[in-house]
């Protein structure tokens, strides 16, 4: 090798690793493990649901389970029609969303578009405290405060029963307001200021800018927030177990008591059911259905989010 006057490339070996980076490797392993824990848990839950659920359907036909409306699995003459539980979950969830979506989005638009930075710094954490209240507290609040209140002030007498889906749904809605508000506000704040300026420079008001530019641009984030809220409402247990009662009944009247899927699991899974019995397997079947519903919803939302995504930049 003749020495050239200018050596563009340093000698070989200079670029080699001088010493092994054990730390780097260890960090990587820890991080991978952390990620695997959540994946592993999900897989474990599904794996534990499947065999028991399969055993359940060995004894009860899926047609009876999904399409009949009498749910008395723990009675001497058992029936396994899950529809009353599904309808109860549906009704409480719809009521909760009717509260949480307008309030949550309203709060998010206010915080992101109207509030002064100082106000936002104070209000947002306070709002998030709502999410930290134990759900059992919400449940008793619904049962011992909201229900009597509704009964007292119900126009024209009548009014809700002691256990009813309405109070449970309303309080559940309040519970998930912070979820909707906080995540939607994050999505709206992430919309570039340049888009807002563009809108204001065309002579739009704050309201027009919020509804025509910011909300559409943040739409996928808002959908994600609402879906998470739905998942929380569907999976919420304590509030409905306490406030909407334990009696499965197929009704669309939210003033009556009803038992949701989660309510059933909580009340039946008390530990005195013999493992392997049909009653025991019932819990898993309902759990599997709940899981399936949530899964379908998440897949649906993933599609929605992609479809409505407005990419800025």
């Amino acid at each position: 090798m003749t020495a050239s006057p200018i050596r563009a490339v340093p000698a070989r070996g200079a670029l080699g690793r001088s010493r092994p980076r054990y730390g780097e490797h260890a960090v990587r392993v820890v991080l991978v493990l952390a990620a695997l824990v959540s994946v592993g848990t999900t897989v474990g839950i599904v794996a534990s649901l499947i065999p028991t659920t399969v055993a359940f359907f060995g004894q009860v036909s899926w047609q009876e389970f999904l399409f009949t409306a009498e749910w008395t699995p723990l009675f001497a003459d058992p029936h396994y029609g899950v529809l009353p539980l599904v309808s109860a979950t549906l009704i409480t969830t719809v009521i909760a969303l009717a509260v949480a979506i307008p309030l949550g989005l309203g709060a998010a638009v206010y915080l992101s578009e109207y509030a002064a930075p100082r106000t936002r710094r104070v209000v947002k954490p306070v709002l998030e405290v709502l999410a930290g209240i134990p759900t059992v507290v919400y449940g008793f609040f619904a049962l011992s405060f909201l229900t009597p209140l509704l009964q007292d002030y119900w126009p024209g007498g009548g009014g809700p029963q002691i256990f009813n889906a309405l109070s449970a749904g309303l309080v559940m809605g309040v519970m998930i307001v912070p979820t909707v508000a906080s995540l939607s506000e994050d999505a709206m704040s992430a919309v570039p200021g340049a888009l807002r300026e563009g809108s204001y420079a065309l002579g739009s008001s704050t309201r027009q800018t919020a509804t025509r530019v910011v909300v559409p641009a943040a739409f996928s984030g808002i959908v994600a927030a609402i879906v998470l809220a739905v998942s929380r409402a569907v999976g919420e247990t304590m509030i409905v177990a306490i406030a909407s009662g334990q009696r499965p009944s197929l009704t669309w009247n939210p003033l009556e008591g009803m038992q949701t899927m989660t309510g059933f699991i909580a009340s039946a899974g008390t530990g005195d059911l013999p493992v392997g019995s049909l009653s025991y397997q019932t819990i898993f079947a309902v759990g599997a259905l709940l899981f399936a519903i949530t899964l379908v919803m998440n897949l649906l939302s993933a599609r929605l989010v992609r479809r409505f995504r407005e990419v800025y930049e």
């Binding site: 570039p192 340049a194 888009l195 300026e197 563009g198 809108s199 420079a201 065309l202 002579g203 530019v213 559409p216 641009a217 407005e310 990419v311 800025y312």
Partner: peptide, 12 residues
Amino acid sequence: GMVFQKPNPFPK
């Protein structure tokens, strides 16, 4: 009206 440094069309 105003036109800005970085083009800022709405994502529409």
